[in-house]
Amino acid sequence: TTYKLIANGKTLKGETTTEAVDAETAERVFKEYAKKNGVDGEWTYDDATKTFTVTE
C-alpha cells in the first residue's frame, strides 16, 4: 500500500511517499524521515486517503 506524507515544517515543506504493509509501518518510516530532516511537529493521519501530515 502506498502512504503519503505531507510535511509542513519550518525547514522542510513538501510531499513524499512510501510503500508499507500497514499504516503503523508507514508512520515509523515517516517519523524517521522527519527526524532526519529536523521536522518535529503535530502529526495527523487520514485513513481514507492514506495520508500523514506533520505540521510545525
Rank of each mutant, 00 (worst) to 15 (best):
A48N: 11
G9T: 15
Y3F: 11
F52Q: 00
I6G: 02
V39A: 04
K50F: 08
T18R: 05
K36W: 07
G38P: 01
Y3W: 05
A23L: 10
K10N: 11
V39H: 05
K50L: 07
A23V: 13
T18V: 15
A26I: 02
T53I: 09
T55V: 09
T17G: 04
G14C: 15
F52A: 00
N37A: 12
E56L: 08
T17L: 07
A26N: 00
T51A: 03
E19M: 14
Y45L: 01
V54S: 01
L5V: 03
F30W: 02
E19D: 09
E19S: 10
T11N: 13
Y3A: 02
T11C: 15
K13L: 12
D46F: 04
G41C: 02
D46V: 05
T53R: 07
T18Y: 12
T44L: 08
F30C: 00
A48P: 07
T51C: 06
K13D: 06
T55P: 01
D22T: 05
E32Y: 05
Y33P: 00
A20E: 04
E56Q: 10
V21A: 14
A34K: 01
E56W: 11
Y3P: 02
A7W: 15
T16M: 14
K13Y: 12
A26R: 00
G41Y: 03
T44R: 08
R28S: 08
A26H: 00
N8H: 13
E32K: 06
L5E: 01
L12C: 14
L5Y: 03
V29F: 15
K35S: 10
T11K: 12
R28Q: 11
A48T: 12
T2P: 05
T49C: 04
E19R: 13
T25D: 09
E19W: 15
E24N: 09
Y3L: 01
T25Y: 07
A34Y: 04
E15A: 09
K4R: 12
K4N: 05
F30E: 00
T11Y: 14
A23F: 14
A34S: 04
A26P: 00
D40T: 14
I6A: 05
T17D: 05
A20H: 03
K36F: 09
T25H: 13
L12I: 10
T16G: 04
T18A: 07
V21K: 13
T16V: 15
E24P: 09
D46S: 06
E42F: 14
T51E: 04
W43C: 00
G14E: 10
T44A: 10
T51V: 06
T49Q: 06
K50M: 06
G38R: 06
L5M: 08
K35V: 09
R28T: 08
E24Y: 10
E15C: 15
T49A: 06
T51L: 03
K31W: 05
K10R: 13
K4V: 10
N8V: 14
T51Y: 02
K35I: 10
F52W: 06
G9A: 13
Y3M: 01
T11M: 11
A20C: 09
A34E: 01
T44K: 08
F52L: 01
K31S: 04
N37V: 12
V29S: 07
G41S: 02
I6T: 05
Y3R: 02
W43Q: 01
W43P: 00
E32H: 07
T16R: 09
T25L: 05
L12Y: 15
V54N: 01
E15M: 13
F30R: 00
K35Q: 11
A20Y: 02
D47Y: 08
K10V: 13
T25K: 06
E24R: 11
N37R: 10
D47I: 09
A48K: 12
G9M: 12
T51D: 01
K13F: 11
V54I: 10
V29N: 06
A20L: 02
D22N: 13
G38M: 06
D47S: 11
F52M: 01
K31T: 04
E32R: 06
D40A: 11
D47W: 08
V39T: 04
A34V: 10
K50D: 02
T55E: 07
V21L: 12
A7K: 04
G9C: 15
L5S: 01
K10W: 08
I6Q: 06
N8G: 05
K4A: 04
K10P: 13
T18H: 07
T53L: 06
A20N: 03
F30A: 00
E15I: 15
T51W: 01
A48Q: 11
K13A: 10
Y45A: 00
E24D: 10
T51G: 01
T49D: 04
D46T: 05
G9N: 06
T44W: 08
A23E: 07
N37T: 05
Y3Q: 02
Y45N: 00
N8R: 11
N37M: 15
K4W: 13
D40G: 07
Y33A: 03
N37C: 14
T49W: 03
K50G: 04
K31G: 03
K35F: 10
A23I: 10
E32D: 12
T17R: 08
K10T: 13
D47P: 14
W43H: 00
A26C: 01
T1V: 11
L12Q: 08
D40M: 11
N37S: 07
E15Q: 11
V54T: 02
A48G: 09
A34P: 00
E24S: 11
T2L: 14
A20R: 02
A7G: 05
W43S: 00
V21W: 13
I6C: 07
G38E: 06
V54K: 01
T53W: 11
T25F: 06
D40E: 14
A20V: 04
T2Q: 10
T17N: 05
A48S: 12
G41D: 01
E42T: 14
E32W: 06
K10C: 14
T16H: 14
E19C: 14
A26G: 01
D47Q: 09
V54G: 00
K50N: 07
A23M: 13
T25P: 01
K35H: 10
D46M: 04
W43E: 00
T44G: 06
T53H: 08
G38K: 07
G41P: 02
E56Y: 08
F30P: 00
K4G: 03
D46P: 00
T55M: 08
K10Y: 10
K35E: 09
T2A: 05
E27L: 15
G41K: 01
G9I: 09
E56R: 04
Y33W: 15
E32Q: 09
K50Y: 07
A34N: 02
T25V: 08
T2G: 04
T1D: 12
G38Y: 05
Y45S: 00
D46Y: 04
F52N: 00
N37Q: 11
V29R: 09
V29L: 11
T49Y: 04
K10M: 11
K36P: 01
E42R: 11
T1L: 10
D46R: 03
G14T: 14
K35D: 07
R28G: 06
K13S: 11
K35P: 01
T18I: 15
K36I: 12
A7D: 04
G14D: 08
G38Q: 06
K10I: 14
K13N: 10
N8Y: 15
Y33N: 03
T11S: 13
E27M: 14
A34D: 01
D46H: 06
G38F: 06
D40P: 03
T17E: 08
Y45M: 01
K36S: 12
E15Y: 13
T53A: 05
Y45P: 00
V54F: 12
T44V: 09
D40H: 14
T53E: 05
E32T: 07
T17I: 10
K35N: 09
F30N: 00
V21Y: 13
T2H: 08
E27N: 05
T44D: 08
A23N: 06
G41I: 03
L12N: 06
N37H: 15
T55F: 08
T55N: 09
K31M: 09
T44P: 00
E27A: 11
G38W: 04
K13Q: 12
V54C: 05
G9E: 04
I6F: 06
G14F: 15
V29E: 07
T55I: 09
